[in-house]
């Protein structure tokens, strides 16, 4: 079966503890799973507009991130394509900042947006400066990866764990 080109994008700042959740997730994903062809995984950091080439290169996009919802820290939420498109999620912050959703708008204007965008998120506990996730959020990395694998299954990808976990060379992506 021919699969679509899928992108998994982890975003956040590793130096702000739980804000780096999405980046930790993609680190664990590439470390522990065999990544098939046609699935692109990117640690996007907080790169804003510079992420547009990646976003425009995929047909389906999964975004892993932390989102500040009125919910208990560590709670995992899923936003379907309809949620993302509804405009109910808004980037906070700057007067004209180029946030993730504005980048999606720009990609759309260029006629190059993915046909479907979904988000899997966690509610952060600790956003202070430092490396490593809080104890509430840390166990959610595996949980989110399981959800992601389920989503990818529907897209025709069976993700298999690596037989031998290879050494991750980037110490930042490991548990601090």
């Amino acid at each position: 079966m021919k699969t679509k080109k899928i992108g998994v994008l982890g975003i956040g700042n590793l130096l702000m503890r739980d804000d780096g959740f999405g980046v930790r997730c993609v680190g664990e994903l590439t470390r522990n799973y065999v990544i098939p062809d046609n699935l692109d995984v990117l640690d996007g950091g907080t790169a804003g507009i510079m992420l547009s080439p990646f976003i425009e290169s995929v047909e389906v996009l999964y975004i892993l991130d932390s989102v500040n919802l009125q919910d208990t820290p560590g709670a995992v939420h899923r936003f379907t394509d309809a949620d993302v498109q509804s405009g109910d999620i808004q980037t906070r912050m700057s007067p004209h900042q180029v946030g993730l959703l504005e980048i999606l708008e720009l990609c759309k204007l260029r006629g190059k947006a993915p046909e479907r965008v979904e988000m899997i998120t966690v509610v952060p506990k600790d956003l202070t400066l430092g490396l490593g996730l809080s104890s509430e959020v840390e166990p959610k990395v595996d949980e989110v990866l399981v959800i992601l694998c389920d989503c990818l299954l529907l897209d025709g990808f069976v993700l298999e764990k690596k037989g031998n976990t290879t050494q991750c060379t980037n110490s930042l992506l490991l548990k601090a």
């Binding site: 991130d65 999620i89 808004q90 980037t91 912050m93 959703l101």
Partner: peptide, 27 residues
């Protein structure tokens, strides 16, 4: 004000880039 401050290309580094579904809070 935006014109002058933006001309410096300000980058107050290292944001928490959090997305907040509740508040559509802009400038």
């Amino acid at each position: 004000v935006l014109r002058t401050v933006h001309s410096f290309d300000p980058c107050m580094a290292c944001a928490v880039h959090m997305i907040n579904p509740e508040g559509k809070e802009f400038s």
